[in-house]
Amino acid sequence: MVLDPQFIWNGIVVGSIISVSALGLTLIFGILNFINIAYGDYMATGAYLAFALNAQIGLPLGVAIVAGVAGMAAGAVLIDKLVFEHFRTSSPVTLLIVSIGVAFFIRNLIRAIWGPTGNFYDVPIEANPNLFGVRYSVEQLSIIVASLLLLTAVYVLLRRTRIGIAMRAASDDRTLTRIRGVDTERLVLYVWIAGGAIAGLGGIMLGLDAQIRPNMGFTALIPIFAATILGGIGDPKGAVAGGFAIGILQEVSVVVVPSEYKFAVALAALIVGLLLRPDGLFGEATR
C-alpha cells in the first residue's frame, strides 16, 4: 500500500496548528501549574478579533492577524488580573475549575457579540495549486511558515534570553527560582503575554484552515491536550513533537480508520503515551 503524500501534507498542516497551540498551553502550565480549560476560548477570541478587523472593518489580513495576536496577549493579561491573580495560592484543581468559569464567560461573550454561526476570513478564493500530486492552499502554506517562525522564536526566547531562562527555571521549581532573586510574579505576566499571543495565533491558524466558530477552540482542545500530555506537561519541546506526531497520525490514520473516527487516534495516542511514557516523550514533564 502506497501512502498518499496528500495525507502527510494535511497532517503537517494540522500538526502545525496543534503544535503551536500545545506550546502555548504547556508554557502557561509550566509557570502557573494548572490546566487552563479556557485556553481553547482564548484561541477563539484571537480568531474573532482578527475576523472583526479583517472581514468586518476591512483591514488587510496581515494587519488583522498581528492585531488579533496582540489583542489576545493583552486579553490574557487582563483575565489574569481580573480572575486568576486572586487564586494564585489555590490548588491546581481549584484553578482548573476557575478556568471552567472563565471559559463559560468568554465563549458565550463571543456568541453574544458575533452570533453562534460560522464565519470566514476575507481571503481570495482560488483553485488550490498542485505540486507533485499534493494539493495545497496558500493558507496552508502560510500556516506552516508561521508555525515554524513562531516555534523558532519561542526556542530562541527560552534558550537565549534571560526571561526565557528564568521561565524554564521557574517551570522546574518556582520556589527555588524566587530564592535566586527572580521576580516570579513578573514572569507570570510574561508567560500570559506569550501564552495569550500563541493561543491567539493558534486560533487564527485554525480559522484560516477551517471556519471561525465560537466553540472552535474548545473542540480543538482534545488533540491539543493529547499533544501536551504526550510531550510531557510543561515541556515545550515535547509539546511541539507531540503536536506534529498527533497531527500526522490523525490525518494518515484515514487510510485505515474511517475518517469520522480520526479524532479517536489522538485519544488512543494519548492513552498509549500515558501508559508507556508517563513523563512525556522526552521524560521532562514538570509533574
Binding site: V83, I97, V98, I100, G101, V102, A103, F104, F105, R107, N108, L109, R111, A112
Partner: peptide, 12 residues
C-alpha cells in the same frame, strides 16, 4: 448566552 456568562461569573 448572557445566562451562561452569569454561570461562569457565579462559579468564579
Amino acid at each position: 448566552y448572557l445566562r451562561l456568562m452569569l454561570v461562569g461569573v457565579v462559579l468564579v
